[in-house]
């Protein structure tokens, strides 16, 4: 054994104040609370979530009410009455941007939930049982993986047709091709957790597969999956905007930032506000989730820093 310090640092050196045995999770939480990136991201996300649940808190104008739009005031710039200006239909851009948060957050959350549950469960099975279970699941995942997910989602939504498109079809279309990534990560994490001594010991003591997976393997394989899930949230939100922009995702009268960008596109040079504000919110939302993912990764896996 080489005795360079860098190697033995993690083992012998613990934060001196901590009394109880520091687990991965309590260590991670300790790190997170001290991370500026995490706090900024968490605050941004909290605001977005509130915005998507109770948009009325942020905007006195109900963006779903068509009577609030005034065609004679279309494509106005920033003013006191319309702080983000107005769009092609003369609707208030600010209230539409606020009301648009809901779709983004919902698509992000639900696509992440679906892919993490499916990919995570299958990854757990593939990693735990190995052999033919693993071979079959991995091969199938490889096939789904070979189709770039936005392209695949575009195909699915194009086939489903605009008349059937909506938030749930978008969630399904995004999830169908994105779960294999979670499977791969979960599988790798389970396989490495499986060969740890304490799991071998538990197995030797007669723990059944359910108990092994639930009590011993899953808690130790969860970290990388959580990191990827957090990061995927931002990816899904951006993908939803892209699909809606292309006309196959969310359809009017629902409000989506991608749809708003598409609507404002043709008059972009005359009235850039109607495009730039939803674009800004979209970027900030993605940024919040990317930052959160970064902070969580740093906390859960300091090696990757």
């Amino acid at each position: 054994m080489s005795d360079t310090l860098t190697e033995q640092k993690p083992k012998s050196v613990k934060p001196p104040k901590q009394k109880k045995p520091a687990s991965l999770w309590s260590d991670a939480w300790y790190d997170l609370r001290r991370s500026k990136v995490f706090i900024i991201a968490a605050v941004m996300i909290a605001v977005l979530v509130v915005m998507s649940i109770i948009p009325g808190l942020f905007s006195s104008v109900n963006a779903f009410d068509p009577t609030t739009c005034d065609l004679t005031k279309a494509r106005q710039g920033v003013s006191a009455a319309h702080i983000f200006g107005t769009d092609n239909q003369g609707c208030d851009t600010y209230s539409r941007v606020i009301y648009g948060a809901r779709i983004s957050i919902m698509v992000g959350v639900f696509s992440t939930l679906v892919t993490t549950l499916i990919g995570g469960l299958l990854g757990l099975l593939a990693g735990f049982y190995g052999r033919w279970t693993d071979t079959i699941l991995s091969r199938v995942a490889e096939i789904f993986f070979a189709i770039p997910s936005t392209l695949g989602a575009l195909l699915i939504l194009a086939l489903v047709g605009r008349e059937n498109a909506g938030i749930w079809t978008v969630v399904v279309a995004l999830s169908v091709l994105a779960w294999p990534m979670v499977l791969r990560i979960m599988r790798a994490a389970v396989m490495s957790a499986k060969s740890q001594d304490y799991v071998l010991a538990a197995r030797a003591l007669g723990a059944g597969p359910g108990r092994l997976m639930g009590r011993h393997i899953l808690p130790n394989a969860l970290a990388p999956v959580i990191v990827v899930a957090t990061m995927n949230m931002g990816v899904f939100i951006a993908a939803e905007a892209a699909l809606s922009f292309l006309g196959v995702g969310i359809q009017s009268p629902d409000i989506s930032w991608g749809l708003m960008i598409a609507d404002a596109r043709n008059r972009f040079l005359q009235a850039p506000e109607a495009l730039l504000f939803p674009a800004l919110f979209l970027s900030l939302t993605v940024l919040a989730f990317v930052m959160l993912g970064d902070a969580v990764r740093d906390a859960l896996d300091p090696k990757l820093r």
Binding site: A242, L269, L276, L282, L287
Partner: peptide
């Protein structure tokens, strides 16, 4: 890089078109 990842093509496309192009 954090910023780059966060700006979707949809946004960077229009913004660069506006700023650099026009």
């Amino acid at each position: 890089t954090l910023l780059l990842v966060s700006i979707p093509t949809l946004v960077s496309g229009f913004v660069l078109q506006l700023v650099l192009g026009l």
